[in-house]
Design a protein around this nucleic acid. Sequence first.
DNA 1: GATGAATGAGAGTTCATTCAT
DNA 2: CATGAATGAACTCTCATTCAT
Lengths: 211, 211, 211, 211
Amino acid sequence: MRPENSPGGQRRSFIEEARRRQIIAAAVEVISEAGYGSASLARIAQHAGISKGVISYHFAGKDELMTQLVIQLYISAGEYIAPRVGSVRGARKQLHAYIDSNLGFIAANTKYVAALTDVVLNLRDADGRPRFASADGERDIIVPLVDILTAGQAAGEFTPEFDPVAMAKSIRDAIDGAAGRAIREPDFDMVAYSAHVCRLFEVTTRKVERE
Amino acid sequence: MRPENSPGGQRRSFIEEARRRQIIAAAVEVISEAGYGSASLARIAQHAGISKGVISYHFAGKDELMTQLVIQLYISAGEYIAPRVGSVRGARKQLHAYIDSNLGFIAANTKYVAALTDVVLNLRDADGRPRFASADGERDIIVPLVDILTAGQAAGEFTPEFDPVAMAKSIRDAIDGAAGRAIREPDFDMVAYSAHVCRLFEVTTRKVERE
Amino acid sequence: MRPENSPGGQRRSFIEEARRRQIIAAAVEVISEAGYGSASLARIAQHAGISKGVISYHFAGKDELMTQLVIQLYISAGEYIAPRVGSVRGARKQLHAYIDSNLGFIAANTKYVAALTDVVLNLRDADGRPRFASADGERDIIVPLVDILTAGQAAGEFTPEFDPVAMAKSIRDAIDGAAGRAIREPDFDMVAYSAHVCRLFEVTTRKVERE
Amino acid sequence: MRPENSPGGQRRSFIEEARRRQIIAAAVEVISEAGYGSASLARIAQHAGISKGVISYHFAGKDELMTQLVIQLYISAGEYIAPRVGSVRGARKQLHAYIDSNLGFIAANTKYVAALTDVVLNLRDADGRPRFASADGERDIIVPLVDILTAGQAAGEFTPEFDPVAMAKSIRDAIDGAAGRAIREPDFDMVAYSAHVCRLFEVTTRKVERE
DNA sequence: GATGAATGAGAGTTCATTCAT
DNA sequence: CATGAATGAACTCTCATTCAT
């Protein structure tokens, strides 16, 4: 394996980071095409045009490669979504931005998202327990969504009738469902679908004036 | 392999069907516990308390076992849900029955659903294409839902403002999402969640009296 | 791996035991010729004229194969030596029989002893600690020797001047040294050497009449 | 690889020798702790705090490193033992000095001796033949011992009844056995053991006055 | 009907070695 | 002098499948 660098120095050289990204990209390609179960190191290496040992050199093992793939994409998604949500004011607009930017990211990175989904659902640690697909995992992910919903209710923008956590889960489900379709259907119209989803949750969160 | 039965004769003996169900049940157990990737025939056989060769004898191969697992569960789900939806009148009540019976089935057969999900997402044919997780697959599944929604709109029970297909997909997403949570969270409260989902889609499909 | 047999039945079939012995014999051959470090499963399988997977089928892993090799030879040695020591009376004669039968066994099974030595010195468990080459291991081995020496001192056959444990170790060293030579030197004369060793320890254990 | 020095010039610079000794020391450490089979160049380099390539630069390959390790230790042992044996007069005293200094060296350099033993027993050349553990190897080692014994017999200090070569081998066995125990048993009392061994061979070599 | 035995391909991983910088 | 990067072979182990009994 790659020897640990001396302490104090920068952890990884530029060229090494590039290799890691290249390998992860190849893994994404293979997984999104052939599925997690067929994504052997040999195949990933072949796709990247490198020797199998290179992967072992840059990653501690297959698990680390897969873990890094997931983490990298989570970060990318966060970097895409956060500013878009943060740049608007008002819970309703933020919710709209959240849904829209999520779906936009998925549409723009469908292969990556496909691979991510596959890894998240299949990767397990040595004990056989899922590494990512856990109750804790979801809790972390929906935090910003719950915040928006709670703030919207507090501000009187949203009806107080729904449970923010349950609603956040439903919104996540709609987004994840859209991701699945974007993956499975080559000419899936994400823009139209985004409009549908936004309207859906606009209706369900709307404060009814008087009934 | 099992010899083909004589033409015209009954397809499978009772005892053979029992064996097949036993093997499928063992497969469900193993997959839901250890994941699709770790569900080897050896492990399934061990779990069923039989020899590995028995599986090969009763199924053409691992793929057929997995395929039968999926089909059997689809049938079971249909047998559970269909009468519950068919026994009520009115689109709104049917939609409610659809959601409720789906979630009820999931809650009562969580392990089976977990295994099914795992297989559907991972099983691929020789070409590497997903056998179940395809656009066609979803289309078939949401047919009854689309029918309910379309009928409801035609009857004036639902607002005409939504696209029945898109709405059906969203309802499926909510159900699938609930399934995921039932699988991941040991003490997931499906009854409460069902109420939340029902209300959600009641609101979004409701005909607004006058605005 | 070989499935665990049903409880109550005999643990291993005759044919399986034969295979295991065959594989162990092949391992002995390879190790004694090429050394422990070169004794890969592939090479052992090739030497046995079987497929690589057969070894994995009959043994839980390489470690178990090596462990069984050691155990089997320890048992064989015990079965050879014990009756020869037990059939004579008197500590002096027993000591002579012990040395002579040990060296006789080594001469008659040089290859096996060579392999055994190699495995004992090299095999380690997952933590990196030697599995056989430990202080405890030697203690167990020299027990019968210590017993003979102690009994001989008690009976007045041996001089009380030596420490039985230390002397037992020295005798073991002489035997182990002879084993090494039998392994390394193709035409090593074990009979002559045995006479030398017997005389050596006869002198050192002899009770001096009067000084 | 390191360029060959110009003919006539000094063979190796001081700094280079230091590097070689450092690498050998690291190899000793790793081998004595983890065993020959686990002593990869990567591990040795890591232990030495250097890059893997450095080893390749200073040694032609792993074999040369191991060979040098053995040779260096043989020399060290010789430098320790020879003057101690040479400084006394009389075969009996020399024999005593030989045994004592051997065991003393082992006690003072247990790790080194452990590594040496491991390498000697495992290192083989390309043909698969042991590089050090051969009949020739032993013959060279016991030469000084045979000389002492022969001289002692000629001078009438030792009884003429034993074969000097056979007795030398037995003495070597006792020393090697002590080394094994020093390696395996953390709190092995070498001083006591040395006394035991010295007395043992004093008795067996002693000239009986009259019988 | 069912089993144990065997196969051979492919998995992830380790490693000594080579080489450009 | 030294390094990081890469290779390719060999390793152990797992697995779906086949087959004689």
